[in-house]
Design a protein around this nucleic acid. Structure first.
Lengths: 218, 218
DNA sequence: ACCTGAACACCGTTCAAGT
DNA sequence: ACCTGAACACCGTTCAAGT
């Protein structure tokens, strides 16, 4: 709060929300989101845990702010195709592109959902593209929602398997299950057998997205 | 380990893995997965935290076991339609039906993925249905994968919004954003405006699933 | 073989006080 | 207004010892 003369009152701030977020981002990037604790963050900022609570409400808000800021930076608006169906595909793919690979994003994502004003432009493109394909505005919103479910699911499931690969040992469990399936009971899976791991590791996001969009626009 | 005469050696067990899982399940059902801690669980089992580590490797394994057991119980195999496309839809819907509403499942799901032998029958039905629709086995597996992304995404995103509704206050944030959108910049979203919350709260899982399956089988 | 007690190395957050 | 210190009420897991 400023006084009528423009002076600030009380003790001047030593740390800012922006500084807190920058340091948090560095910890997350270098050591993973699990290592981001309020105590550790305070230490790296050169302050105390409780000082942080003057700038963010709690740890949850910190994570959401982190995601919003990342989205604002990473979601550069691309040139989109003129064809409405291709525009929908390209907008969804751009969101996924920006969020994939950032392992920590998936873990925060479940705490927020379509995040930040910065993502709304993409939402607009998708809804608009679907309307131009002939859907009513209501069905276009539902279509956007389906696309978001698919995209978020891909991000979350893939992040989970990446984490599991890091922790080993359960990957071999799945391989064991698929290696000795009963071909009587589960013939298709038994036939795929050892190719399962390779097949599900392939990046088929775009194929699935196109199928979904094709199905949505009829 | 049994001796050649069938006797067990060493101190007889006081608690079993089955008992641990049953108590864990009760805690999760009654108070939520966040309240399930090794210490709390030990207390309810009438033992000590470290005794648990003789029956499960760590907390992660406990959660996966819990999910596997729940899936085995909840995934009753339904009568499936003869038409292959409808069979794919029905099998996916059955998985989703069993897992939806169980709020804790979503939080564990990101730590596992297609869970347990008990789910493989459904996977088989989906892959088989897609093959009968004319897809190659490889494309059928990719198709299954897309359906799983969509289904897991729906479960996780909806569970996240349910949690947020419980915690309030940020729901109003989204409403505020949507209430004063710039109609110049985001005309479609501005037009939907206050109907956004209602529209995205609707259960349109089946519509999206059908669209995806339609798109997959061409 | 199975269980216990004590300890290690942490958490997020509140409260009361200081400048 | 902003920050600090001490404390509260917890965590998961390891280690050494007991029966």
């Amino acid at each position: 709060m400023a006084t009528p003369t423009g002076q600030r009152r009380g003790r001047p701030p030593r740390i800012s929300r922006a500084e807190i977020l920058a340091v948090a981002r560095r910890i997350v990037d270098e050591e993973g989101v699990d290592r981001l604790t309020m105590r550790r963050l305070a230490k790296d900022v050169g302050s105390t845990p409780m000082a942080l609570y003057h700038h963010v409400r709690d740890k949850d808000e910190l994570l959401v702010l982190l995601l919003d800021e990342y989205a604002a930076r990473a979601l550069r608006r691309p040139e989109l195709p003129a064809d409405p169906r291709e525009r929908v595909v390209a907008a969804a793919a751009a969101i996924r592109e920006a969020l994939a690979g950032q392992e920590w994003v998936a873990q925060v994502l479940t705490a927020d959902d379509l995040m930040a004003r910065s993502a709304l432009w993409f939402t607009e493109q998708i809804v608009d593209g679907l309307v131009e394909c002939g859907l009513t505005p209501e069905r276009a919103v539902h279509g956007y929602r389906a696309i978001w479910y698919y995209t978020a699911g891909e991000l979350l499931v893939r992040a989970a398997s990446a984490r599991r690969r890091a922790g080993d040992d359960r990957a071999t469990y799945r391989e064991r299950v698929f290696a000795d399936l009963d071909p009587e009971e589960l013939p298709r899976l038994a036939a795929v057998g050892d190719r399962w791991a390779r097949l599900t590791a392939e990046d088929t996001y775009l194929d699935g997205l196109r199928a979904l969009v094709d199905g949505l626009v009829g």
